[in-house]
Amino acid sequence: MIRHIAGLGRRGCELLEAMGRAGLFLAQSAVGVPSREGFYLWLRQMHFVGVLSLAIVMVSGLFIGMVLALQGYTILVDFGAEQALGQMVALSLLRELSPVVAALLFAGRAGSALTAEIGLMKATEQLSSMEMIGVDPLRRVVAPRLWAGFVALPLLTVGFSVVGIYGGYLVGVEWLGVFDGSYWGNMQSSVDFIGDVGNGMVKSLVFALVVTWIAVFQGYDLIPTSEGISRATTRTVVYSSLAVLGLDFVLTAVMFGGLS
């Protein structure tokens, strides 16, 4: 019994210590004077985590918008309210689905790759050798990736929403015959820029920070063996998915639940 309590305490201490390390890690890598070289490194990472994630995010957005319209239509048509399809699709996407699903896809596509890449650099002593050359790997390797993720995910979320709404239009208007004036008109009158688009973007920024932070930290902090890399990559996906879903509830409660 005592051993279990001691074990619990030890795990608690380890957790706190890891969180402290992660916090220091974030502070040391994200805060610094931008340089021209840093800009180029960032740009290259933007291509890697942003541009190369475009395809999966856009295709998913299109299908989710289409499914949303199809499901929404079958329910709304019972009440003769299919004219509200546009606002239903837009609000679901902007407030909820785009930030969350884009973040989950981003964690799977880019987050795991960041962890594996940094982890392999650590395992092959490339990070150590960089340190010994007098270059801080936190600034040179981690910072550009952190900032690229932080900027790329919100942009991908915007793309997700746009494509999703278009997917809803394809199914609702082109296929099921909802009047396109009411699809766009109801959407325009019911979507609030600050309340819906703005809050969705705030969510996306929070998710971007958390997912990228988890990904690069897991890569930097792993045990440099092949097993360590595979575990850390899995942890990145699991932790970031849980963090995104958990934070989504908290943020939704604060933004839309009347708790603020």
Binding site: Q28, T124, E125, Q126, S128, S129, M130, E131, M132, I133, G134, V135, D136
Partner: peptide, 21 residues
């Protein structure tokens, strides 16, 4: 950390694996 990195510019290290980028 900053001064340490400056000091390291005066050192070279040959790693066992080479550790090339």
């Amino acid at each position: 950390r900053k001064v340490l990195f400056r000091l390291r510019r005066r050192m070279g290290m040959l790693f066992q694996s080479g550790a090339l980028f």
